[in-house]
């Protein structure tokens, strides 16, 4: 390219970036397994926003372990909206001053437009006979889960296991601690996010059982065909509420608050709820939930508030530096 050409191109680029009619851009920083959900949802929202306002919007997605993603936002990744795996990670962003501390009251249903839970994914025919949490600590069973220090899904896994052990006859915190210690002794690989663990289990063929988001388990079956893996629903699991919110400081700086708000609200509309349900997230809207009721197994669900007294307390006790996870996961 001649020097003159370079000059012209530079001018064009400058003109394009300075043009007032340029499309607004949103960055949605999300957790690991939501890629497919938000790909479809973003396309639907872009159409809807164009139809309603006549304005164009483009949406970028970023995915990874929820705690890692929260860290990136705190360290300066300019997310307009965050759609993470659990409330604590958004609390951590709020604590850094980027968004309002009462964020969870800003949208309906604890700002969680869809819910999910934790199920087991096993090899076809369940050769190790894994039926419930108790089977995970048996010798010779390899369990795949991501790392609770970086992944939201992994923290739901851990807490569901803890709650199960606590509920057994004679269960206590000490017994539950022994149980999760034994469980993590059976974990050969700790990936940093849920999708990484799915890859390890499904593509690399490592492990006998994957502790997975329900949506991730269904997606694996859809991708692989039902002849490779089976879903096992344990006797008890946890109600996972992945929350969403706007990052106030970023939208105010970029002038994207209106479109970011509309984006999150669209998750609660019948269209948004249908998309969530099609990607195996449990919809909140009664009508959509009824329509897809048959698609989701009936699971005996406990909640984080009932058993652990909320995320702040659970995080402090179990996952903070020096917490129970740090005590039990030690080199042998």
């Amino acid at each position: 390219m001649s020097r003159k050409h370079v000059f012209v191109v530079t001018l064009l680029l400058a003109a394009a970036s300075a043009a007032p009619a340029v499309a607004q851009e949103l960055l949605n920083v999300s957790y690991d397994p939501t890629r497919e959900l938000y790909q479809e949802f973003n396309a639907a929202f872009i159409r809807d926003w164009q139809a309603k306002t006549g304005k164009a919007v483009t949406i970028q997605q970023s995915h990874g372990g929820a705690a890692k993603q929260a860290r990136a936002v705190i360290d300066g990744l300019e997310a307009d909206v965050v759609t993470l795996a659990l409330a604590y990670d958004i609390d951590a962003i709020a604590a850094s001053g980027l968004l309002a501390r009462d964020w969870q009251k800003r949208l309906p249903s604890n700002s969680s437009p869809y819910t999910s839970t934790i199920v087991f994914l096993v090899r076809k025919g369940n050769p190790k006979g894994i039926r419930d949490w108790g089977d995970l600590v048996k010798p010779g069973v390899q369990v795949i889960t991501p790392n609770p220090k970086t992944s939201g899904g992994a923290r739901w896994n851990y807490l569901a296991a803890w709650a199960y052990a606590r509920r057994q006859s004679g269960g206590s915190d000490a017994k539950a601690k022994d149980f999760v210690t034994a469980l993590f002794k059976n974990v050969p690989v700790l990936d940093s996010g849920a999708r990484g663990s799915t890859t390890t289990f499904v593509q690399r063929g490592i492990g006998d059982v994957l502790l997975a988001w329900e949506n991730e388990a269904f997606l694996s079956i859809q991708e692989l065909g039902p002849d490779k893996v089976d879903i096992v629903v344990p006797s008890l699991s946890i109600l996972a509420e992945p929350p969403v919110t706007i990052v106030d400081k970023v939208v105010d700086k970029k002038g994207t608050r209106a479109v970011a708000q509309a984006y999150l609200e669209y998750l609660y509309t019948p269209e948004g709820q249908e998309i969530a349900a099609r990607h195996f997230y449990r919809p909140r809207l009664e009508a959509v939930a009824k329509k897809y009721a048959a698609a989701f197994p009936r699971v005996n669900l406990i909640t984080i508030d009932d058993v652990f007294g909320g995320w702040q307390k659970a995080q402090r006790t179990h996952f903070a530096d020096g917490g129970i996870f740090d005590q039990i996961y030690q080199p042998r």
Binding site: P188, V189, T200, Q203, R204, G205, I206
Partner: peptide, 24 residues
């Protein structure tokens, strides 16, 4: 390397038969 040495990989599969785990 992980794809190659995973228990279902080209080199990982024969190693796994010998009881040797390479990946991770």
């Amino acid at each position: 390397l992980t794809t190659l040495y995973a228990p279902n990989g080209w080199l990982g599969a024969p190693l796994a038969k010998l009881g040797i785990k390479a990946a991770f």
